[in-house]
Simulated scan of single mutants.
Amino acid sequence: MKNALITGATKGIGHAIALAFAKEGINLAICSRNIKDLQQTREQLLAVNPHITVSATVADASIKQQLLQFAQQAEKELGSISVIVNNVGTFIPSSILDDTEDTFDTQMNTNLRPGYELYRYFGKKLMAAKEGHIFNICSVAALSPVVTAGTYSVTKAAVYSLSNIMRLEMQQYGIKVTSVIPGSTITASWDGVEVDKSRFVLPEDVAAAIVTIYKMSTGANVDEIIIKPVFGQL
């Protein structure tokens, strides 16, 4: 069995990816700041596939020490991690000039730092094993900046750039790196807003794409995939 680590796996896209991987028989390491959400997600994953192992750690992925403790706990319970999904993120809609004092730090520490730190932690281990796949959840805002979400766009562009550098560093070792670039997707960011689901990408769509990419032959990699609503961005 393969072992995958997913940040932000209790909600939205991360949750859908975790469920999809569970169906594929992949052991999972997940974390959350909320112990209730964490336990509920672990139960859901084991209900989908009781034959997998799920390592669940209470941790805030935006805090380096807690993130690395999560990574260490995952290895302790599952063994070597070969799949990493850098999914955790936060969306704060604001133009840069209207940002609050903590907007930059909050989004950098949540959207960019976890992927960077986990890459630093697992990268050379993946190199030594000569196998693995890193999925970085970016955003179309990385390619087409949104002025009403300026700092968010900046952090997602940084994730996209980091992903490209990861791929260049890893390709000679056979490690795959994929940038996943979703457009408007139904997630917690839309809570409280009445929406027409047919005008959005669903988290399950992103998860299905990731599973398909993961199952490709050893010699094939999808560098990046863009998934947008058929009627255009919202």
Rank of each mutant, 00 (worst) to 15 (best):
N3L: 12
A4T: 04
A4F: 03
G8Y: 04
A9N: 08
A9W: 15
I13Q: 14
A16Q: 14
K23V: 05
I26G: 03
N27T: 07
N27P: 00
A29Q: 10
S32H: 04
L38R: 00
Q40R: 10
Q40F: 08
R42E: 14
E43S: 08
L45Y: 00
L46N: 07
N49F: 06
N49P: 11
P50H: 04
I52F: 03
S55M: 05
D60P: 00
S62A: 09
S62L: 07
Q69L: 03
Q69A: 11
S82W: 02
I84R: 01
V85Y: 02
N87R: 06
V88E: 00
V88L: 05
G89D: 08
L97I: 01
T103D: 06
N109M: 13
L112A: 00
F122T: 07
L126N: 03
I137L: 09
A142C: 06
A142S: 14
P145E: 00
T148H: 14
T148M: 11
T148F: 01
A149H: 07
G150H: 08
T151A: 08
A157D: 11
V159K: 10
L168P: 00
M170C: 09
M170I: 02
Q171S: 12
Q171P: 05
I175W: 13
I175P: 08
V180W: 12
I181D: 06
P182E: 08
G183I: 12
S184Y: 08
W190M: 14
W190F: 15
G192S: 13
E194S: 15
V195G: 04
K197P: 15
K197W: 12
S198Q: 15
R199A: 13
A207Q: 12
A209N: 14
Y214T: 11
K215L: 02
M216C: 12
A220W: 04
N221T: 15
E224L: 05
I226Q: 07
F231D: 11
